[in-house]
Structures are given as C-alpha cells and as structure tokens.
Amino acid sequence: MKQFQYVRPATIQAALDVISKPGSKIIAGGTNLVDLMKRGVTAPDKIVDINHLPLKGISEPIGNVMTVSIGALALNSEVAENSRIKELFPLLSMALNAGASPQLRNMATVGGNMMQRTRCGYFYDTTMPCNKRQPGTGCGAMEGVNRMHAIFGASDQCIAVHPSDMCVALAALDATVEVAGKKGKRYIHFADFHRLPGEKPQIDNNLAPDELIVRVIIPTNNFSRNSYYLKIRDRQSYAFALVSVAAALEIDNGIIKNARLAMGGVAHKPWRLFEAEQFLVGKTASEENFAKAAGLAMKGAVGHGGNSFKLKLAPATITEALKHAAGLV
C-alpha cells in the first residue's frame, strides 16, 4: 500500500474542504477502501477519516414526520439490530444481515455500504483489463469469467454488479439520500443514486466527488408484515449474491394493494422491478401471479455465458421471495 496523508476533519464543512481536493478518499468503516488500497486498485494521496463527524444517529418517525432517518455513519450492525428498524423495515434488517459477516457489519457504515465498489475479479486484479478501474483498457469479464456479473443494464464497457444487499432493500423501500456539498444539501432518490455503467463505468454513482452522504431517509410504509429478502449464493452465509431479491407486499384480504421489488447481483445498481410491481397491484397473492410478475421482471435481461443461468435463477428467486413475503412458504 502506498503511503498517504491521513486527516481527521472535525466538521462536515472541513471534510467537504478536504475531499474537494483530487486524490482524496473518505474513509469510514474502511472495509472496502482498505481492501482496495491493499490490492493497489486505488492509491489515494490523502485519507479523510470522517468517523468523528456527527452522522451516526437513527431517528424515529415523530408526529407528522413519517420518515426514519439513518445517519451515513450508522454501522450496518446498528441499523440491522435497531428495534425500530426491525419493526418498521424488517426488509432492511434482513438485507443487512444477509451481507458480509458480523465483524464486517460492525465496521461498515451505511454510507460506506452505498459507496462500495464492485467485487468483479477483473476490477480487483490490476494486471487485468478493466474499464472501471482503468478506463479504456477493456472489460475482462465480458468474454471472461462472468458468472457473478450483470444481466440488466450492462454496457459494452462494463458488466460489473453492485455488491450491496442493503442497497437492494433501500431501493425497494423508496429511500432518499441526503448529500452535502459545498453549495449545500441535495436529495437523491435511492433508485437514482447508483448509475448504470454506460460509457463511464468508472463512475459508480451520482454522488459528486466533492459531496458527502449525510443520511438516508426512509418513508414509513405498510410492508412490514409482508417483507422478505432472499439471497441466493454459493454458500449459506458470507458470500456475495448470485441473485438476491427484496420483496415487500401490502396485502389486504389476500389482494395485493402495493408491491415493491428490487434485485441484487444482476446490475450495476440495485435493480427495481417497476413493471412487476405494477402488475402485482390488485392481484391475488398467489404463486401463479408471482411467477407472472417474475416473468415481466426479466424483460431486457441479457446473459453473457457464464452468468446466463441468472436468466432462470432470477425469476425463480423473485417468485420464491414473493412467496416468502406473502407467507405462502
């Protein structure tokens, strides 16, 4: 690892001053950044430790404020274990607990989880071509080992996936991200936070380099009784998703009033299944309808050989997740 300058700003404003300089990287939990630095994938001149900033809190819905706010520095384990989160958004708690390991969840923050890079092997190996790591070198995975890779929204530049579980749940829960920049605050809808690779796979998301995630805001909902996060992976725990599905239903007398679906392990960003959600509204909560919804969700999916099995696994996982959410399993 290259030697770097370590700074520890005391205020958000100070942090914004520092991160606006090129070569700076924010560190929070460090679970991905330190890993990337060890592999030489990133070699910042300056590490900006933001752990002392007041961005940890989890707020409750109070009065007519029907949202929960989670600070960017809240630990993954704190959020997953928070009793109000478990009660209001069991989907988020399940997704968080499906990710990484207890130790890593004790280090990783909500903001850091959002900012984590892909786990594509070509991205990690600095001797391999990778447009995300080094634009213009090509995509190693496209014609290579791409079992873990994207079936939705990929470009000819990049077929990497975003590895987060938490983000899949947050996308399904219609969260909003509050970010701070030198010009002040702005809000990004969670589904728009991460981006597709397009011609610029080196850019993972729509956070500007001189901006900082402050918190994530989740509107309360009626999904808590019928939510499920199903993650299919090569072992039972501590592995990235082949495919994961966040499913949330509001069911009244067996009829679906509202549905939210998002997938992980299939795209460069958490993949919302808007069409399938719409289809489910007004339908009976049955396996047959779930399978139909899953079919709709697969429109536009493209396999690249090694990952073509996902074209079958993804709809199967959607159906399974919905069955769990609806209590049919």
Binding site: Y122, D125, T127, G140, G144, V145, D234, R235, S237, Y238
Partner: peptide
C-alpha cells in the same frame, strides 16, 4: 463450492481470495 478458476486467456486465477474461493462456513 470449491473451485479455483483460471481465466485461460491470461492463465491467471480470477478467484484467488477467500471471498470468491468459497470454503464452507459454519452456516453450511
């Protein structure tokens, strides 16, 4: 779960780490 995978174009292992080369964990 165990398989060390080479990208034969480069002759290089692509999963040479404990995140991508899976060995059983307690939950298995």
């Amino acid at each position: 779960m165990e398989e060390s995978i080479i990208d034969h174009r480069y002759g290089r292992y692509i999963n040479n780490n404990f995140a991508d080369y899976h060995v059983p964990v307690n939950a298995d």
